[in-house]
């Protein structure tokens, strides 16, 4: 015998004030990392303060050509992405940092460039395209 629990849909309001530059940047085609003003440590994903120096970081645009280090294509689609066909997640290195994004037909070692776009659900994100 099964008893169905009462329904409790969960949706959270996430405060991203400190990283607003990143989220707004995506809408302008810019992808940011941050660099510690004191020790020079680079953060991607970006954070507004350096964990170790406890000081502010500078916002620096990531550009140029990256190299694919890992990827996968998701065939078992999770809740939240029901609208999508199988999609490919790529991690590529750009200098001292890495960026995650969606891509197509990639393999490890491929050179990629990053751009931003809205997905079919209206979320802005990074795409990595083989060059």
């Amino acid at each position: 015998m099964i008893i169905e629990s009462r329904e409790l849909p969960l949706k959270h309001n996430i405060s991203v004030k400190k990283t607003e530059k990143y989220w707004k940047g995506l809408e302008e085609g810019k992808i940011y990392k941050t660099v510690c003003k004191n020790c020079g440590k680079e953060y991607s994903p970006p954070q507004a303060e350096c964990t170790f120096c406890r000081c502010e970081t500078d916002w620096v645009e990531i550009s140029g050509v990256g190299v694919v280090e890992a990827f996968t294509t998701i065939h078992t689609i999770p809740k939240g992405f029901e609208w999508s066909e199988p999609y490919t997640i790529v991690i590529a290195r750009f200098g001292n940092v890495r960026v995650m994004g969606w891509g197509k037909n990639v393999k490890v070692g491929d050179k990629v460039r990053a751009y931003t776009a809205k997905d079919a659900a209206g979320v802005w994100k990074v795409y990595l395209e083989v060059v």
Partner: peptide, 21 residues
């Protein structure tokens, strides 16, 4: 926020990326 929210990383995806490397 930086992974699942934007890119839909499932748990198998994390190990699959390691497998690819």
């Amino acid at each position: 926020l930086w992974e699942f929210h934007q890119y839909g990383t499932t748990f198998p995806a994390y190990y699959a990326m390691h497998a690819s490397a």
